[in-house]
Write a protein that binds this DNA or RNA. Sequence first.
DNA 1: AATTAAATTTCGCCT
DNA 2: AGGCGAAGTTTAATT
Lengths: 252, 252
Amino acid sequence: MRIITTPTLKEAISVVHDALNQKKVLILVGKCTVQYKGRARSTLSLGDRILIIKRDGAVLVHRPTGYAPVNYQRSGCIFYAKLEEDRLKIEAIDQKHKEYMKIFFSEITLVACLDLRDPGEFALYATEEDIRRAILANPEMLEEGFKPISIEKEVEPGFIDICGLDKNDNLVIVELKRKKADKTAVTQLAKYVNDIKKRSRRVVRGILAAPSITKDAHILLISLGLEFKKINIKACMESLRKTEERKITEYL
Amino acid sequence: MRIITTPTLKEAISVVHDALNQKKVLILVGKCTVQYKGRARSTLSLGDRILIIKRDGAVLVHRPTGYAPVNYQRSGCIFYAKLEEDRLKIEAIDQKHKEYMKIFFSEITLVACLDLRDPGEFALYATEEDIRRAILANPEMLEEGFKPISIEKEVEPGFIDICGLDKNDNLVIVELKRKKADKTAVTQLAKYVNDIKKRSRRVVRGILAAPSITKDAHILLISLGLEFKKINIKACMESLRKTEERKITEYL
DNA sequence: AATTAAATTTCGCCT
DNA sequence: AGGCGAAGTTTAATT
């Protein structure tokens, strides 16, 4: 781990070499120009930027504004760095995709070779309750003509997420999963459907609603005569958001 | 400009406040967790990351690998930063898009408040010669049935980029521009077309081929009975790349 | 590996 | 400011 502020180019390149050789993360801040050639071509004239080279060989050049990097390379690059007259030159070559980028630093504010450990897990999700509220607010999200019933009172099986009637007045039992549904979700749904079938002379359909489903679970689901409905998390959140806005508007 | 390595959380938050108040660029490296709620929701458990907050209120959280940020906010956020027990909490709120993100740092390796100036211009382009070679290699790119002629010998007007025959055997004069075409490009093309018309009894069409065209130029173009063909720079580069690969293959 | 579809797509151009 | 379409899109899922 080496961090130097306002280093000379010579000091800087030593840190750069360390980072590249040891596959650590490099941050370089300073005045630079960038050239790119590959699927397209680009040039970027002199200015202050933040360069990040990651362990996997991904490269980002960021300007002081804007979400997107002005120049980048995807992971898998190989690098050459050297001192050239009064500039530090870094080449990033993506041989596989035939993409080539070079950066010339003429002045460096900060160079850092970082040993970052990141075992953390990233989870993108909506809660089951989010999905439930979204479907109740916008039942067509589940199926055209779907009408939820008695969501307030918990019926005896106790843990049915949503039940309702389809456009043909068949009973529909919905099991929700906030992430990829597995076999346990299918058996759970099957149990509820069977319970209800015993007590009703209606046709009873079972729908497993989730962002995705494992292959095994889907095979089991079909063999049991049940159905899968893919839920779009983003659409759920959008729907909820609109509902909330509507609620606010109704109060104005 | 303040840069501190392994600061205490107290030292760090002072730099964070400086950066946010003075609308400078903030870089924070350390152990953190992230939560996001907006169009979707996400959580990210503890790990080493690089946080960048830009002048325009854009936020990036980068892990040690991967091109894309694991969490982000678009420009226009407002921020709240405070010390909370033994964590530094930063909230980034995008009121306009109703996106909310919070980051909790428990350990900081590096904090930097940077005054970056970037007047540089970014230009994405293909050279005129690139475009020419691409069209000659793949004439349908210009128009279905287009056949280039005599590109080797420079004809008298001298500076015609490409000429050829369309599927109806009409003469076609092509003027290339590597970036947005303006009125001068149109008058240039008009001149060549008129020159050729005087010497030929064929129908002579004039096509201005460029990535885009100014409104004024397009109006003038139409009034002169000329045509515009939008050129996709990426498609040109892809075409060239394939041609080069083919050439190599032919030698094997 | 190649192709397709979705993305917290982002980004620019036009209305 | 909102809507549409392209992007050095990226990324995940599927064939």
